[in-house]
Amino acid sequence: MRKTVVILASVALTGCAGMMDIKGTGYVVEADPGYVALSIDNLKRQLKDPESARISGVYTVKTEYTGDTVNVCGLINAKNSYGGYTGSRLFAATPTVVYIERQVIGGSDYEAITNNNYVITHCKLRDGERHVFLPQYKN
């Protein structure tokens, strides 16, 4: 039993270390303000308390993984079901898809790892690329 726990823990930690090594392929692009607003609205709809959302550091990016799709990326801090703020987390959003770092909706650790990988691969900029933050999302 102990051997199984040690092996599972080692595998889990190895997977987390691999996430940090993901090379950024993103490049900043301009996006239609309406597209950005729809993406942010979709992001807020995923929250327990949408009105509490504090969104900052928003930028729009394309990567080799997204093709023509533009991801709206940034930081979100919102209240959880206990009424406390969760702390800033990275997010990637489009009008139809939302991924939030460390968010587990269905109670699955696999889902949390999947969300982390998605956010990193779809928002991490390539070397030398600079963020261009959208001024309307400063708070």
Rank of each mutant, 00 (worst) to 15 (best):
M1L: 11
M1A: 13
R2E: 13
R2K: 04
K3P: 02
T4P: 01
V6P: 05
I7M: 13
I7Q: 12
L8N: 07
A9Y: 09
S10N: 06
V11W: 06
A12I: 12
L13F: 14
G15F: 15
C16I: 07
A17S: 12
G18F: 11
M20T: 15
D21S: 14
I22V: 15
I22R: 05
Y27N: 05
V28E: 05
V28S: 04
V29Y: 08
V29W: 07
G34L: 08
Y35D: 00
V36D: 02
A37R: 10
A37S: 09
S39H: 01
S39L: 01
I40H: 04
D41A: 15
N42W: 10
N42C: 07
K44Y: 08
L47Q: 10
D49R: 01
E51G: 10
E51Q: 09
E51C: 00
S52P: 11
S52V: 10
R54T: 11
I55L: 02
I55N: 03
S56W: 01
S56P: 02
G57K: 02
V58Y: 03
V61E: 09
T63E: 03
T63N: 04
Y65R: 08
T66A: 09
D68I: 05
T69Q: 14
V70W: 04
C73G: 11
L75R: 08
I76A: 11
I76W: 07
N77G: 13
N77A: 11
A78K: 01
K79A: 00
Y82E: 15
Y82P: 06
G83L: 10
Y85T: 13
T86K: 07
G87D: 07
S88W: 09
R89I: 01
R89A: 10
L90V: 02
L90G: 09
A93Q: 02
T94Y: 10
P95S: 04
V97Q: 14
V98T: 13
V98D: 04
V98Y: 02
Y99A: 14
R102A: 10
Q103C: 00
V104Y: 02
I105K: 12
I105D: 15
I105V: 15
G106T: 13
G106S: 12
G106P: 05
G107S: 05
Y110Q: 05
I113E: 05
T114I: 03
N115C: 03
N115F: 01
Y118T: 15
V119A: 09
T121M: 12
K124I: 04
G128R: 06
V132C: 00
F133W: 09
F133M: 03
F133E: 04
Q136E: 15
Q136K: 12
Y137Q: 06
Y137T: 06
Y137F: 15
K138V: 15
K138I: 15
